[in-house]
Protein backbone atom coordinates (compact mmCIF):
# COMPACT_ATOMS: atom_id res chain seq x y z
CA UNK A 1 0.00 0.00 0.00
CA UNK A 2 1.41 3.37 -0.94
CA UNK A 3 1.88 6.41 1.30
CA UNK A 4 -1.00 8.34 -0.29
CA UNK A 5 -3.37 5.51 0.46
CA UNK A 6 -2.30 5.31 4.11
CA UNK A 7 -2.58 9.10 4.45
CA UNK A 8 -6.05 8.96 2.92
CA UNK A 9 -7.08 6.23 5.39
CA UNK A 10 -5.76 8.31 8.29
CA UNK A 11 -7.92 11.27 7.24
CA UNK A 12 -10.93 8.96 7.02
CA UNK A 13 -10.21 7.60 10.51
CA UNK A 14 -10.27 11.16 11.85
CA UNK A 15 -13.57 11.89 10.10
CA UNK A 16 -15.00 8.59 11.34
CA UNK A 17 -14.00 9.39 14.93
CA UNK A 18 -15.51 12.89 14.69
CA UNK A 19 -18.80 11.41 13.50
CA UNK A 20 -18.63 8.59 16.03
CA UNK A 21 -19.15 10.89 18.99
CA UNK A 22 -22.30 12.30 17.32
CA UNK A 23 -23.53 8.80 16.58
CA UNK A 24 -22.83 7.75 20.14
CA UNK A 25 -24.93 10.68 21.43
CA UNK A 26 -27.77 9.52 19.15
CA UNK A 27 -27.32 5.92 20.35
CA UNK A 28 -27.48 6.95 24.02
CA UNK A 29 -30.60 8.98 23.29
CA UNK A 30 -32.26 6.04 21.49
CA UNK A 31 -31.31 3.67 24.31
CA UNK A 32 -32.87 6.05 26.87
CA UNK A 33 -36.06 6.18 24.80
CA UNK A 34 -36.09 2.38 24.56
CA UNK A 35 -35.67 1.85 28.29
CA UNK A 36 -38.05 4.64 29.36
CA UNK A 37 -41.29 3.75 31.11
CA UNK A 38 -43.28 4.74 28.01
CA UNK A 39 -40.82 3.10 25.58
CA UNK A 40 -40.53 4.66 22.12
CA UNK A 41 -41.24 2.00 19.46
CA UNK A 42 -38.91 3.72 16.96
CA UNK A 43 -35.94 3.58 19.33
CA UNK A 44 -35.02 -0.01 18.39
CA UNK A 45 -34.89 0.92 14.69
CA UNK A 46 -32.66 3.90 15.49
CA UNK A 47 -30.29 1.65 17.47
CA UNK A 48 -30.18 -0.89 14.64
CA UNK A 49 -29.44 1.84 12.09
CA UNK A 50 -26.60 3.35 14.16
CA UNK A 51 -25.10 -0.12 14.75
CA UNK A 52 -25.35 -0.82 11.00
CA UNK A 53 -23.55 2.42 10.14
CA UNK A 54 -20.76 1.77 12.62
CA UNK A 55 -20.30 -1.88 11.66
CA UNK A 56 -19.97 -0.97 7.97
CA UNK A 57 -16.86 1.14 8.33
CA UNK A 58 -15.30 0.62 11.79
CA UNK A 59 -13.38 -2.61 11.18
CA UNK A 60 -12.18 -1.52 7.72
CA UNK A 61 -10.70 1.59 9.36
CA UNK A 62 -8.92 -0.46 12.00
CA UNK A 63 -11.49 -0.45 14.85
CA UNK A 64 -11.98 -4.21 14.82
CA UNK A 65 -13.55 -4.69 18.25
CA UNK A 66 -15.96 -1.78 17.73
CA UNK A 67 -16.95 -3.12 14.29
CA UNK A 68 -17.59 -6.59 15.67
CA UNK A 69 -19.66 -5.28 18.58
CA UNK A 70 -21.76 -3.10 16.24
CA UNK A 71 -22.32 -6.07 13.92
CA UNK A 72 -23.31 -8.27 16.89
CA UNK A 73 -25.82 -5.68 18.10
CA UNK A 74 -27.32 -5.28 14.64
CA UNK A 75 -27.57 -9.07 14.15
CA UNK A 76 -29.33 -9.47 17.50
CA UNK A 77 -31.91 -6.84 16.60
CA UNK A 78 -32.49 -8.13 13.05
CA UNK A 79 -32.62 -11.73 14.26
CA UNK A 80 -35.40 -11.01 16.68
CA UNK A 81 -37.20 -8.24 14.79
CA UNK A 82 -40.30 -6.98 16.55
CA UNK A 83 -39.89 -9.11 19.65
CA UNK A 84 -37.58 -6.91 21.74
CA UNK A 85 -38.67 -5.02 24.79
CA UNK A 86 -36.75 -2.74 27.08
CA UNK A 87 -36.42 -5.65 29.53
CA UNK A 88 -34.45 -7.76 27.10
CA UNK A 89 -31.25 -8.33 29.02
CA UNK A 90 -29.28 -9.52 25.99
CA UNK A 91 -30.10 -6.38 24.03
CA UNK A 92 -29.28 -4.13 26.99
CA UNK A 93 -25.91 -5.85 27.39
CA UNK A 94 -25.01 -5.53 23.68
CA UNK A 95 -26.03 -1.88 23.41
CA UNK A 96 -24.23 -1.01 26.64
CA UNK A 97 -21.08 -2.68 25.32
CA UNK A 98 -21.44 -0.80 22.03
CA UNK A 99 -21.82 2.55 23.83
CA UNK A 100 -18.72 1.80 25.90
CA UNK A 101 -16.64 1.03 22.80
CA UNK A 102 -17.96 4.11 20.99
CA UNK A 103 -16.89 6.19 24.01
CA UNK A 104 -13.41 4.71 23.73
CA UNK A 105 -12.85 3.09 20.32
CA UNK A 106 -9.80 0.84 20.07
Amino acid sequence: MNANFLAGLEKLREKFLAELSQRNASLKDAFSRLTAEDADENAIEDISWIAHKVSGSAATLGFKELGEQAARTERLILGTAGSHSADDAALRAEVTALIRLMDDPR
Binding site: G8, L12, S57
Partner: peptide, 15 residues
Protein backbone atom coordinates in the same frame (compact mmCIF):
# COMPACT_ATOMS: atom_id res chain seq x y z
CA UNK B 1 -25.46 6.08 1.62
CA UNK B 2 -22.57 6.36 4.11
CA UNK B 3 -20.14 9.14 3.19
CA UNK B 4 -17.31 7.52 5.14
CA UNK B 5 -17.75 4.32 3.14
CA UNK B 6 -17.88 6.22 -0.16
CA UNK B 7 -14.61 7.99 0.67
CA UNK B 8 -13.11 4.74 1.92
CA UNK B 9 -14.09 2.99 -1.33
CA UNK B 10 -12.60 5.85 -3.29
CA UNK B 11 -9.28 5.46 -1.46
CA UNK B 12 -9.29 1.67 -1.84
CA UNK B 13 -10.30 1.64 -5.51
CA UNK B 14 -7.71 4.28 -6.42
CA UNK B 15 -5.06 2.31 -4.53
Amino acid sequence: DDEVIRRLMSEILTN
